[in-house]
Simulated scan of single mutants.
Amino acid sequence: MTGRRGGRPLVPAYLSTGGVARPSRSHLERLSVLTAAGPPAPAELPAAGLALLDVLAGGSLTVVEAAALLRLPVSAVRVLAADLIDRGLLLSRAPIPAADRFDPDLLKRVADGLRALKH
Score class of each variant (00 low, 15 high):
residue 2 T to M: 08
residue 3 G to Y: 07
residue 4 R to V: 10
residue 5 R to C: 06
residue 7 G to T: 14
residue 7 G to L: 12
residue 7 G to V: 06
residue 9 P to M: 03
residue 11 V to I: 15
residue 14 Y to I: 13
residue 14 Y to N: 11
residue 16 S to R: 15
residue 17 T to Q: 04
residue 17 T to L: 05
residue 18 G to V: 03
residue 19 G to K: 08
residue 20 V to K: 13
residue 20 V to M: 08
residue 20 V to P: 00
residue 21 A to D: 11
residue 23 P to V: 12
residue 23 P to G: 10
residue 24 S to H: 01
residue 25 R to Y: 00
residue 27 H to Y: 05
residue 28 L to M: 11
residue 28 L to H: 07
residue 28 L to N: 08
residue 29 E to G: 15
residue 29 E to T: 15
residue 32 S to K: 06
residue 32 S to E: 03
residue 35 T to H: 04
residue 35 T to C: 01
residue 36 A to C: 01
residue 40 P to F: 05
residue 42 P to E: 08
residue 44 E to S: 12
residue 44 E to R: 05
residue 46 P to V: 04
residue 46 P to T: 03
residue 48 A to M: 02
residue 49 G to M: 07
residue 52 L to V: 07
residue 52 L to M: 09
residue 53 L to T: 02
residue 57 A to Q: 13
residue 57 A to I: 01
residue 58 G to Y: 01
residue 58 G to C: 02
residue 58 G to Q: 15
residue 59 G to L: 03
residue 59 G to R: 11
residue 60 S to V: 03
residue 61 L to Y: 04
residue 63 V to Q: 02
residue 64 V to N: 03
residue 64 V to Q: 11
residue 65 E to F: 15
residue 65 E to Q: 15
residue 67 A to L: 07
residue 68 A to Y: 04
residue 70 L to M: 14
residue 71 R to W: 02
residue 73 P to S: 10
residue 74 V to G: 00
residue 75 S to W: 05
residue 79 V to G: 02
residue 79 V to T: 13
residue 79 V to E: 05
residue 81 A to L: 07
residue 81 A to G: 06
residue 81 A to H: 04
residue 82 A to H: 00
residue 82 A to K: 04
residue 83 D to Q: 14
residue 83 D to L: 09
residue 88 G to A: 10
residue 88 G to H: 02
residue 90 L to V: 04
residue 92 S to R: 08
residue 93 R to L: 05
residue 94 A to L: 07
residue 94 A to G: 01
residue 95 P to G: 10
residue 96 I to Y: 01
residue 98 A to L: 06
residue 99 A to C: 09
residue 100 D to M: 02
residue 100 D to P: 06
residue 101 R to P: 08
residue 102 F to N: 08
residue 104 P to N: 11
residue 105 D to W: 07
residue 107 L to R: 14
residue 107 L to K: 07
residue 109 R to S: 12
residue 110 V to M: 10
residue 111 A to I: 06
residue 111 A to G: 07
residue 112 D to N: 12
residue 112 D to G: 02
residue 112 D to Q: 00
residue 112 D to T: 02
residue 119 H to F: 13
